[in-house]
């Protein structure tokens, strides 16, 4: 990387940093319990819109692995999501009616909350349909992982977004509140991911999976990115660059080894494809607030009428993290 590029990247980071501070005006406090955050607590940050039905299980899952506090930005929900979250003892909720797109898809808000409340903490940035799976997550709490990362002086932890889907028609995959969505959307593509390197941001660009296979087979370049760095030790000056795929300073994106070794990494189970989704695609395509004018949702909405099937005979059924490790979707690295 040339000095010129490095300087430009540094400027970009500062611009986003100050932009996040400016965008704090978008947020209105609904319920703030950030005083409850103790040193060493692990936090979850999330932006959401009309996800009320998913919330009980989301909270239960992350409380189960030992998350201490949740910070939510509610982007104009009309289904009572904010009120529900405000009633939870470990949640702080902000509300905004501002444009999702113009907050760089919620990233500005998260960057502000991170700067204001999360410095010195390990923060997990996930959507409410993403479930973080890390090595030994069945026997060790998240705190074991973050303590180990601290001990080995690692500041961020990578995870690939793994799209989960049900067998059969999406509209038939009825989700009820409080249910584990992975019980319904329990299938995934095990080995059709393509990786290339993004040298500017020192990160990997991962694409593929069922969305590329079914929706983007004719224009694979537009298929959504699946690389994420969801878990990061926040300190002042850290910003998410584009969604939670990339961070700045870019050293935080070096969650992979390029000399042949494996670094420890996890998986985000993405339980997006349920019956709730089928209804959302049209709406989001019309709203065009998502990445690339909601291109992704348009593709879905167009194809939804044909009742596309994600499932194929080579789909794998999710069992546990060890299965994902054997399949090579995640790694224990040198954590044993």
């Amino acid at each position: 990387m040339s000095a010129f590029k490095a300087i430009r990247l540094g400027l970009r980071r500062r611009r986003w940093y100050y932009r996040a501070i400016r965008k704090r005006r978008d947020l209105t406090r609904v319920k703030q319990r950030t005083r409850k955050i103790r040193p060493g607590d692990t936090l979850v940050m999330s932006t959401l819109r009309n996800e009320r039905i998913r919330l009980p299980f989301f909270l239960a899952y992350y409380r189960g692995i030992g998350v201490d506090h949740f910070l939510f930005v509610d982007n104009g929900s009309t289904d009572g999501s904010a009120e529900y979250l405000a009633g939870q003892p470990d949640c702080s909720v902000w509300r905004t009616e501002a444009s999702y797109r113009r907050s760089r898809f919620g990233v500005d808000w998260l960057n502000w909350l991170g700067r204001r409340y999360c410095c010195g903490h390990w923060v997990l940035c996930v959507d409410v349909d993403e479930f973080f799976v890390y090595p030994f997550c069945d026997t060790r709490p998240l705190r074991a992982l973050t303590d180990w990362l601290d001990a080995t002086e690692i500041r961020s932890f990578g995870a690939m977004l793994l799209d989960m889907y049900p067998k059969g028609d999406l509209a038939q995959a009825a989700y009820s509140e409080g249910q584990n969505p992975i019980e319904i959307a329990s299938w995934f593509d095990a080995g059709n991911y393509t990786i290339s390197r993004n040298w500017d941001y020192s990160s990997l660009w991962i694409q593929g999976g069922p969305r590329a296979r079914v929706f983007f087979a004719d224009r694979p370049k537009l298929a959504p990115a699946l690389n994420k760095v969801p878990l990061v030790k926040w300190r002042r000056g850290v910003v998410f660059a584009s969604s939670t795929h990339m961070l700045l300073p870019r050293g935080l994106n070096l969650v992979f080894d390029d000399q042949g070794g494996e670094k420890a990494c996890g998986v985000l189970l993405h339980a997006k494809f349920l019956d709730v989704f089928a209804g959302r695609a049209d709406e989001e395509a019309a709203r065009a607030e998502h990445y690339g004018e909601g291109r992704e949702y348009k593709a879905y909405a167009d194809r939804m009428a044909e009742r596309p099937q994600f499932w194929c005979k080579w789909s794998e059924r999710y069992i546990n993290w060890r299965q994902l490790e054997i399949l090579g979707l995640m790694s224990k690295g040198n954590w044993a």
Binding site: G158, A159, M160, Y193, I195, R197, L204, I206, N227, V255, F256, D257, D258, Q259, G260, G261, E262, K263, A264, C265, G328, L329, M330, S331, G333
Partner: peptide, 12 residues
């Protein structure tokens, strides 16, 4: 690492 594997944590 595992030879021939390309993933989130390994990209030689």
């Amino acid at each position: 690492g595992r030879a021939g594997l390309y993933m989130t944590g390994r990209f030689p």
